[in-house]
């Protein structure tokens, strides 16, 4: 392997680690909290949601990057970014849903219920906007999106595991539900603070 390509691989791994651990989308950046709280009752559903998000996020990063650099920028329509991106994501989710339904019914059955929810997952719109604002190239943008999605999956599956156990515990009445889940997420966020500074540029 030549030095240039080895450097490239190291760079990709660093971007992935940074997105998964140091800048975890849920626990550090606060994006996508709605599904984080809503779909984290069972490990199984949390995993399904994580996979669906990974799939859509990678696709959305690809398509929005192309839209930004080949449609919005040349035409000077930068101010339509928010509008264009949310429409791209909404139609992409719809398209993925129809495509999976026809081509892979088993995958559709396991992801199907979560797909419509992803349109309003702000982590998807967030990662596409951050990719553009940070001036990432196409490859970096997709790697960053995959890393972000893996970080999402990691955090939501961890929280689901804890919540499954917590069902058995004796939580004070007023703390039940969202309240105790948020406090649990806070403790997880402290643990993830330990990753800060793991990667120095």
């Amino acid at each position: 392997m030549s030095i240039a390509s080895a450097n490239g691989v190291v760079k990709i791994i660093l971007i992935l680690l940074n997105a998964i651990l140091c800048n975890n989308v849920l626990l550090v950046q606060f994006q996508g909290i709605c599904p984080f709280m809503g779909v984290s009752r069972k490990v199984e559903t949390a995993t399904g949601m994580g996979l669906a998000v990974t799939f859509v996020m990678a696709l959305a990063a690809l398509v929005t990057w192309l839209v930004q650099h080949f449609i919005l920028d040349p035409l000077g329509f930068g101010y339509l970014q928010t509008l264009a991106f949310i429409l791209v994501i909404a139609s992409l989710v719809q398209f993925v849903e129809m495509f999976l339904q026809k081509s892979s019914p088993t995958l559709y059955q396991s992801l199907g219920v979560y797909l419509p929810l992803i349109t309003t997952n702000c982590a998807v719109l967030g990662v596409t906007i951050i990719n553009i604002n940070s001036g990432y190239g196409l490859g970096t943008a997709i790697v960053n999106a995959v890393g972000t999605a893996l970080g999402f999956t990691l955090a939501i599956v961890l929280l689901a595991g804890i919540r499954e156990r917590m069902e058995l515990g004796n939580t004070p009445k007023h703390l039940r539900g969202f309240s105790i889940s948020l406090i649990t997420a806070g403790l997880m966020a402290i643990a993830f603070l330990g990753f800060t500074g793991l990667i120095t540029k």
């Binding site: 004070p172 007023h174 703390l175 309240s179 105790i180 948020l182 806070g186 966020a189 402290i190």
Partner: peptide, 16 residues
């Protein structure tokens, strides 16, 4: 960020 989660969780419990 951790403090954000704690604050929200505690405020929710208080309102409940």
């Amino acid at each position: 960020p951790a403090g954000g989660f704690f604050t929200f969780g505690l405020f929710l419990a208080l309102f409940n």
